[in-house]
Nucleic acid binder design. Sequence first.
DNA 1: GCGGATTGCGAAGTAAAGTACGCATTGCGT
DNA 2: ACGCAATGCGTACTTTACTTCGCAATCCGC
Lengths: 121, 121
Amino acid sequence: MAKTSSKSSPGDREDLGRLGAFIRSQRRLAELSQRELAKLTDLSDPYVSQLERGLHEPSVRVLKSLARALDVQAETLLSYVGIGGDTSGSAPGVAEAINADPDLTDAQKAALLEVYRSFLS
Amino acid sequence: MAKTSSKSSPGDREDLGRLGAFIRSQRRLAELSQRELAKLTDLSDPYVSQLERGLHEPSVRVLKSLARALDVQAETLLSYVGIGGDTSGSAPGVAEAINADPDLTDAQKAALLEVYRSFLS
DNA sequence: GCGGATTGCGAAGTAAAGTACGCATTGCGT
DNA sequence: ACGCAATGCGTACTTTACTTCGCAATCCGC
């Protein structure tokens, strides 16, 4: 599989170009100038310009700010940077839920996961 | 002010500490050293150390790599940095995940749930 | 026509993300 | 006791995200 279109490991410059194009299109839809968007997001105008041209991979902080200003879901922007595509891994549900549970200690998580894995085999 | 007030805005140092703690806990659950995780993620070991101590906000590239190596959903990591927004109060639901798992028999589900409930009390 | 205000961008700088190297400690084998 | 390998971290460095300043082009009123 040469490159399944959704594979895109980040560091992939093409994603940045598409992200930039999307940002630009949303900005124009909202009838904002780069400077106005910059002010809304607390960024500098040249940086907005660079982002739209795909020159940089923005941080999550910037992505979030952009999402709010452009009135789109943060996940939408993240998908351009490559969040959507990971389906590799064991059963996502249970292990994931256990790991994320704030009421469990590490030792308890480990124990629970061990029982769970023993059931799977 | 909308409702986002009580939740962390990006740039919040506390989120980094919680993200770091989560990464460390996941790494230990997977029984990996910082150097091993670093190799899996193509990062340097001191940087993994710094991340676990909450000294930096990792880029999405790093977040994604970390998610794959630790076998968690990228969204989970993102939520710590303030995307999903909800890491307190409503967990994904261990009980629900167990019940929804097609690879477990009813008896196994019951056993797992019993262990889980014993941990909660 | 000539302002000036606004737009988008290049260039040089600062701040933060990420690396290379090494030190101190702990654990294990002899 | 003595190595020695492995772990986690401090420090100094490079690379990249991001800013401050300014320039050239376009659009508007006069």
